[in-house]
Design a protein around this nucleic acid. Structure first.
Lengths: 187, 187
DNA sequence: ATATACTGAGACAGTACTGTCGCAAATTAT
DNA sequence: ATAATTTGCGACAGTACTGTCTCAGTATAT
């Protein structure tokens, strides 16, 4: 096979990041294959979007794994939790960069399994946030779910900032961490 | 006239906040008018979306005005600038709540005038941010444009949090201000 | 070299829109 | 009450998709 299913997904995501409403024909063209071949791999457009969703969620899960989230959930000391949190944040930057369009794609909420998967992944981050709150790493006067949503919004910030060329790619980790943790107020 | 153009816009925005990809027929139904009537007011779907964009931008400008942004730009003292900033942030919550879908609607970038308008409004906020940085209200180690984008992302956070029912409406101003200015880190 | 599998191109029907029109009914103004 | 305006409804052509199919050409494997 000249172009594998995984390659198609990659090309589709890349194209949809710039044109979220692209048709099957445009996606096929961007992937360098015919529309018929694209339909052979993904029977419907919805199937394709769902597949992209799973890919994005896989990247999300990998980010959690590489951040050591699972292990950190058993810890109670500041250092371990803080390190996991920082890693998680920086790992997410790539995810937002590669699968950014998934952040605001409402079509993904139609797939039951995908919604459940997103919920699970989100729930694990909420657990980490709560653990950080108990350990005194994060402020306790905000709900963990709000903080989780703040994280989501800041990833949209990252995506847009990079898309518009407002910040340099290499500055993003520092900016995101500082903004997220310390806010933008002086001292 | 039973339903004015302004009422149609209001109903359309309300409906599109929940279903961003709604068709003209669905929008008409949501507004309580026929599709033909909707087309009499807005010749094309694009015209309608553009009109919603102008409405959203008008609300945006009103938020800036009520926050006293213009006057604050001439000031250099902390108190005035800080007060304008706080007002601007809280004023924006309503805008995000009422015109939330406009935050991520890419179709609005096709209208030249609308893009210029958005640019102007954004530029004024950047100027305020820079003034706040010079006055020691906001940290100077981040570009004003990044901070402006952070603000944008947090409005997406607000929209999603309210849409999902994760936070109470009355808690939003405090949460947003605290998060924006102080971040989520303990102490 | 031959069989197998895959691909691109094109045609096709089906669907869901958009945008326009005419007309009858209802609303509003005078 | 009558005229003018506005509306809903249905019909219509036009467009842009989606999803399926066929067929001829190409690559791949044995």
């Amino acid at each position: 096979m000249a172009v594998s299913k995984e390659q198609i997904i990659t090309a589709a995501i890349r194209h949809l990041n710039g044109s979220p409403a692209a048709s099957m024909g445009q996606i096929a063209q961007a992937a360098g294959i015919s529309r018929a071949t694209l339909h052979r791999h993904f029977a419907t457009r919805e199937d394709l979007i769902i597949a992209l969703g799973w890919r994005a969620h896989a990247a999300w899960e990998r980010a959690q794994a590489e951040a050591g989230l699972e292990e950190a959930l058993g810890a109670t000391d500041r250092a371990t939790l803080e390190r996991a949190l920082h890693r998680l944040i920086t790992q997410h930057i790539e995810v937002a960069e590669e699968h950014g369009f998934a952040l605001t794609e409402h079509l993904m909420e139609v797939d039951e399994g995908l919604v459940r998967r997103a919920h699970e992944l989100e729930e694990r981050e909420v657990l980490l946030i709560e653990a950080c709150q108990r350990a005194g790493v994060l402020r306790p006067d905000m709900s963990a779910r709000w903080i989780s949503n703040v994280f989501f919004g800041l990833l949209v910030t990252v995506r847009e900032s990079l898309r518009r060329g407002d910040v340099a790619r290499r500055d993003v980790p520092r900016l995101l961490l500082e903004t997220f943790l310390r806010g933008i107020h002086e001292n």
